[in-house]
């Protein structure tokens, strides 16, 4: 028996990262197939894509067909119209607001910041929750107890009331708000979910194998446990985005945030100018932003639910 054939048989011709990539790609394709089975999830994804296109279209429109001093979301004003707010017309598809700015332009402009806010909050949440969850599950003991008590504590706080108090007394912009929401939900309820999941991963044989092979704690946590939390993380991001967009809109509605423009501010402007009591007559001031907030929040939520069925086999039909 010669050793040569055995060697060629085990010889790895592709670099490791390529194999990893291929496996990841295959997994992705399978998950996508499962995801597309759920029509509701696809609807959600469609809505997100639609808003994404709106966000991208705004700067393009501003540079091409929209005259900047008429359509600017902050300082635009249409001099050809005498009375503002004005109902939808060919020039202003969704009318103008009490100060004479184009509602559609405001709506599209705000979409960008909603995405930034939602994604930033989600990334912060998930980064904190995965690391803390994995560390708590892996080490257990006092560290675990501390983080879990902290999570309980944050869970018991009345979230919106806290945000109201904080934003009323401190200057909060979009980024600060995203960070705050990310930190609160990252150390709060989300951690508990991630820790529970990490605990089930911790007892898997390959973790034991990695330990026996002499992997350091950090190596095991970040190379073996955290990657296995990724599907859950992805799923959770969707729900956090919903929460973040909602919180921003509510706080803006109360006029507590230091922002120039957002969907919530659009409603706030309408209210401050007294047009809320006008009933249906001024629908174009309140329906578009309200519906946009609702739709985008639902879309992320629906995608999250559909992902849940992909990630959690117990919910699948077959």
């Amino acid at each position: 028996m010669t050793t040569a054939p055995a060697e060629t048989a085990f010889h790895i011709q592709e670099p490791l990262w390529k194999i990893r990539l291929r496996i990841a790609w295959k997994g992705l394709k399978q998950s996508w197939a499962l995801f597309t089975e759920n029509k509701i999830g696809l609807v959600g994804l469609g809505i997100i894509v639609f808003f994404g296109l709106m966000a991208l279209a705004h700067p393009i429109l501003m540079h091409t067909v929209w005259e900047p001093n008429i359509y600017d979301p902050f300082i635009g004003n249409d001099p050809t119209i005498l009375q503002h707010p004005s109902p939808p017309s060919a020039r202003h598809l969704l009318g103008t607001d009490p100060v004479g700015r184009d509602v559609l332009s405001q709506l599209m402009y705000s979409t960008q910041s909603e995405f930034v806010l939602g994604l930033l909050a989600a990334i912060v949440t998930v980064t904190i929750a995965t690391s803390v969850g994995a560390i708590s599950a892996y080490f257990g003991g006092a560290l675990d107890a501390f983080f879990m008590r902290l999570a309980d504590l944050i869970n018991i706080l009345p979230f919106i009331a806290l945000l109201v108090v904080l934003t009323a007394f401190f200057d909060f912009g979009m980024i600060e708000l995203a960070l705050l929401i990310g930190i609160l939900s990252g150390f709060g309820g989300t951690t508990i979910i991630f820790k529970a999941q990490a605990l089930t991963i911790k007892v898997k044989p390959y973790i034991e194998a990695a330990k026996v092979a002499g992997g350091s704690d950090l190596h095991i946590i970040f190379r073996h446990i955290v990657p296995n939390l990724m599907p859950l993380a992805f799923l959770n991001m969707m729900f956090t985005v919903t929460g973040a967009i909602f919180s921003e809109a509510a706080l803006s509605f109360f006029g507590l945030l230091n922002l120039r423009m957002s969907w919530g501010i659009m409603i706030n402007t309408t209210q401050a100018a007294g047009y809320l009591l006008g009933g249906w007559k001024y629908w174009y001031l309140i329906v578009p932003p309200g519906l946009a907030i609702t739709l985008l929040c639902s879309a992320f939520y629906l995608v999250g639910r559909a992902l849940d069925e992909v990630v959690n086999p117990r919910l699948r039909r077959r």
Binding site: A249, F253, I267, T294, S298, Y301
Partner: peptide
């Protein structure tokens, strides 16, 4: 579940 409460 996700409707913008004040608006709704």
């Amino acid at each position: 579940y996700t409707v913008f409460t004040p608006w709704f």
